[in-house]
Structure formats: structure tokens, C-alpha cells
């Protein structure tokens, strides 16, 4: 199966291929975001805009700060300084759960499936504004039964789409690593997000499942969602991303469409300077 042609490239018309480039229609803007762990500056990003409705890849050699940056953008970690605006909402001091409710949902590098809950319960959990999540209303099932049915229906449809229906009533802990990645992505969609942030969606996924995961990610964009993903797998980056942001040592060193990145001198230096044995095949073209 060949890669689908990217359909969101035109969103980047006129955007210069340089770090911190202003996008035509940014959904997420980060300014001077800095996070240090003791003496180590893990993230020091001057400016980043994420284009609405596109798939943006965030790549970088190990230790570049991509995951930390991801945590900072979703408020799972607080930056020392810096502003983040999501759809015009300042994220300063906003709890992580509220960021999710604003419409930006993330997944984790180490998959967080809720092992001792069934797959369908994992999915149902993602439903937002559930009346039955109040203790007192929980005691009066007639107040939330209808909503529960609606959520279950939506969950079943997503499970169908992610080919997990046969595992519906199994404990999530019995799923394979790849299936857990699928479940986590499907569960994130239950929140009905505008933007999903995937932290290494391909880590530990077997090649057979990879293709279907890729299709699911492009599927998100085709539904109008914005996707930002962190990834080390260059095949995936080349295949599905519309725009690539490269980080090294906590800074953004390059931006541009995937084709432009492989030939970027700063990127080559960042990868090959410290990682001679990197799987990245930059000199092929």
C-alpha cells in the first residue's frame, strides 16, 4: 500500500521554511516556552505555531525535548516561563484536565490503557460532560442512562473503526501493545477533540499494524482534526505529515514540509553530529 497523497499541503502556502515560521491559521501558538530540570534546559522554544487542520510532526534525536515539549503544551508539565495559546485560550495555570476539555487531547509514549477496566469502559470514560459523573446523580441511574447509551453507541462505532470490536468486553490489560495504541487513540477521540497530540504513536507497534495506524492518523485530519505527533520513525514522518518541526537540544532548529527537512543542513548536523548510528536515512536523496 502506498502513501496517500497529502491533502493539507496547500494550508502551508506562503509559509517560509524556517524555525518559528508564522502559519496561515494557527490553532496552537507557543512563545518563549522554557523548561529546565536543574541545570539542564530541556526545552527552550522561542516560537512555534501549529497549523489548523494539518498533520504536524515533531521530530528530534533522543533527548531533543520533544516529549517534554508535548507535556508543556498539554499542561502535564508547567513551563518555567512562556505562553501557550490554544484556540485563543491562554493555557497558563490551566489544569491538564481542563486542557483536554478545551479540545486538546493527548496520548502517551508509554501507553496508558486502564488494564483492569474493559475495553468498552476505557472508551466510555472518554465521553465528556457525563451527568453520571456526579456522585449524587450516580445514585439515580435514570438521570444518565440515556446519555450512557449514546456514549456506548459512539464508543462501539469507534471500536468498529479501530478494529477492536472483538475485544470489547475484555480487560484492556489483555490487549497487545499495538492494540493498546489503537485503544488509546480511539479513546482520545471519545473526547471529540479539535486537536490530538500523539506521543510516539508508532513505538512498539508491529509493521502489520503500522499501516492501519497511519491510516487512522490521516483519517483524523480528514475529519478536520489537527494532529501533532512526536515520532522517531522517519517512514511515518515522511509518509503522513504535512509539516515537520525539528527539535534538537530543546530548540526548534528547522521547519518545513517533509521533503525539505531531509536536505536541511541543520537537521543533518543535529542527527549525524551526535548520532552516527541513527536509522535516519538523510543522504539517500
Amino acid at each position: 500500500m502506498t502513501a496517500e497523497p497529502s491533502t493539507a499541503q496547500e494550508l502551508f502556502d506562503g509559509v517560509p521554511y524556517e524555525p518559528g515560521a508564522a502559519k496561515n491559521d494557527p490553532i496552537l501558538v507557543a512563545d518563549n516556552v522554557r523548561r529546565a530540570f536543574g541545570g539542564l534546559v530541556a526545552v527552550d522554544v522561542e516560537h512555534l505555531e501549529v497549523q489548523l487542520g494539518a498533520i504536524t510532526a515533531l521530530i528530534g534525536p533522543n533527548g531533543a525535548g520533544t516529549t517534554t515539549f508535548c507535556n508543556l503544551l498539554t499542561n502535564f508539565d508547567e513551563p518555567d516561563t512562556g505562553d501557550r495559546l490554544f484556540e485563543g485560550n491562554d493555557l497558563l495555570g490551566v489544569s491538564a484536565y481542563k486542557v483536554a476539555n478545551l479540545g486538546m487531547v493527548r496520548t502517551f509514549q508509554l501507553t496508558k490503557s486502564l488494564s483492569k477496566m474493559t475495553v468498552i469502559d476505557n472508551m466510555r470514560l472518554g465521553g465528556t460532560e457525563q451527568a453520571g459523573e456526579s456522585f449524587f446523580r450516580a445514585l439515580l441511574p435514570f438521570l444518565w442512562r440515556r446519555q450512557e447509551a449514546e456514549i456506548t453507541q459512539r464508543a462501539d462505532a469507534l471500536l468498529e473503526r479501530f478494529k477492536l470490536s472483538h475485544m470489547r468486553d475484555e480487560f484492556a490489560g489483555t490487549l497487545s501493545g499495538g492494540q493498546r495504541k489503537l485503544l488509546e487513540m480511539a479513546r482520545a477521540l471519545m473526547v471529540r477533540p479539535n486537536m490530538v497530540m500523539l506521543d510516539e504513536p508508532m513505538a512498539g507497534v508491529n509493521p502489520a499494524l503500522k499501516q492501519s495506524l497511519l491510516d487512522h492518523v490521516t483519517g483524523l485530519r480528514d475529519e478536520g482534526m489537527t494532529v501533532l505527533f512526536v515520532e522517531h520513525d522517519m517512514d511515518m514522518v515522511q509518509e503522513i505529515s504535512d509539516w515537520v518541526v525539528v527539535m534538537a537540544e530543546g530548540r526548534i532548529i528547522a521547519e518545513g514540509p517533509p521533503e525539505s527537512i531531509a536536505s536541511n543542513q541543520a537537521v543533518v548536523d543535529a542527527y549525524l553530529g551526535s548520532h552516527h548510528d541513527s536509522a535516519l536515512d538523510l543522504e539517500a536523496d
Binding site: 483536554a100 476539555n101 487531547v105 486502564l114
Partner: peptide, 17 residues
């Protein structure tokens, strides 16, 4: 369900709002 999710993984629950 939310309580059980928190028992399993608090961050996952938080990431779902």
C-alpha cells in the same frame, strides 16, 4: 468508572478531561 480509571492511571484520566 472515573474512580477506577484514576486507580489504574491518574494521568490517563486527566488526559481525558
Amino acid at each position: 468508572r472515573v474512580l477506577r480509571a484514576i486507580r489504574e492511571d491518574e494521568d490517563a484520566a486527566r488526559s481525558l478531561g
